[in-house]
Amino acid sequence: TTTLTYTDEEEARKAAEELKRRGITFTYTKRGGTWEIRIK
């Protein structure tokens, strides 16, 4: 499992869109002031 952490929502959203485009499965979690993208 790879976890990407972002403090900028815009960056996190761009990363999530890129992963979706590649067909990669991930979970997206907001934790306080950070956003976590966990790639399975």
Rank of each mutant, 00 (worst) to 15 (best):
29 T>H: 11
28 Y>S: 04
12 A>L: 04
1 T>N: 11
18 E>A: 10
26 F>P: 01
10 E>L: 13
1 T>F: 15
15 A>I: 09
27 T>Y: 06
31 R>E: 09
6 Y>P: 00
10 E>N: 14
34 T>R: 12
38 R>D: 06
2 T>M: 13
20 K>D: 08
19 L>E: 00
36 E>Y: 14
17 E>M: 12
7 T>R: 07
27 T>D: 07
28 Y>Q: 05
4 L>R: 05
6 Y>N: 00
15 A>W: 05
7 T>S: 09
6 Y>K: 01
38 R>A: 12
30 K>N: 11
32 G>S: 06
39 I>Y: 11
20 K>G: 06
8 D>I: 10
34 T>A: 10
36 E>M: 08
29 T>M: 11
29 T>A: 09
38 R>I: 15
11 E>F: 04
6 Y>F: 15
32 G>A: 09
40 K>W: 15
20 K>H: 11
21 R>L: 10
35 W>H: 03
21 R>S: 09
3 T>Y: 10
2 T>S: 08
20 K>E: 11
5 T>Q: 08
14 K>D: 06
25 T>F: 12
23 G>H: 04
31 R>G: 05
33 G>W: 07
34 T>H: 13
31 R>P: 02
2 T>D: 07
3 T>E: 03
8 D>G: 04
1 T>D: 14
23 G>K: 04
25 T>L: 14
28 Y>H: 03
27 T>Q: 06
1 T>L: 12
25 T>V: 12
40 K>Q: 15
23 G>E: 03
11 E>M: 10
7 T>K: 07
25 T>E: 15
16 A>Q: 04
12 A>G: 03
5 T>P: 02
27 T>C: 09
9 E>R: 07
3 T>Q: 04
38 R>T: 15
9 E>A: 07
23 G>V: 01
28 Y>M: 15
34 T>Q: 12
40 K>A: 14
8 D>F: 05
35 W>F: 10
24 I>A: 04
15 A>P: 00
17 E>S: 10
31 R>M: 11
2 T>K: 11
38 R>K: 13
25 T>Y: 11
16 A>I: 15
1 T>A: 12
12 A>T: 01
17 E>H: 09
2 T>A: 10
8 D>K: 08
35 W>C: 03
19 L>D: 00
33 G>P: 11
2 T>F: 13
2 T>R: 12
23 G>T: 02
32 G>Y: 05
29 T>I: 13
32 G>C: 08
17 E>Y: 10
18 E>C: 09
36 E>C: 03
22 R>C: 08
32 G>M: 06
1 T>E: 14
23 G>Q: 03
25 T>R: 13
7 T>V: 09
26 F>M: 02
40 K>S: 14
27 T>E: 11
10 E>I: 12
19 L>A: 01
12 A>R: 01
18 E>L: 08
19 L>W: 02
14 K>L: 11
36 E>K: 03
12 A>E: 00
3 T>V: 15
37 I>R: 00
27 T>L: 06
10 E>F: 12
15 A>R: 04
15 A>M: 15
29 T>V: 12
32 G>P: 04
39 I>L: 07
7 T>A: 08
32 G>Q: 09
31 R>S: 11
14 K>N: 10
24 I>N: 02
8 D>Y: 05
3 T>M: 10
12 A>V: 03
21 R>A: 11
4 L>M: 10
30 K>R: 09
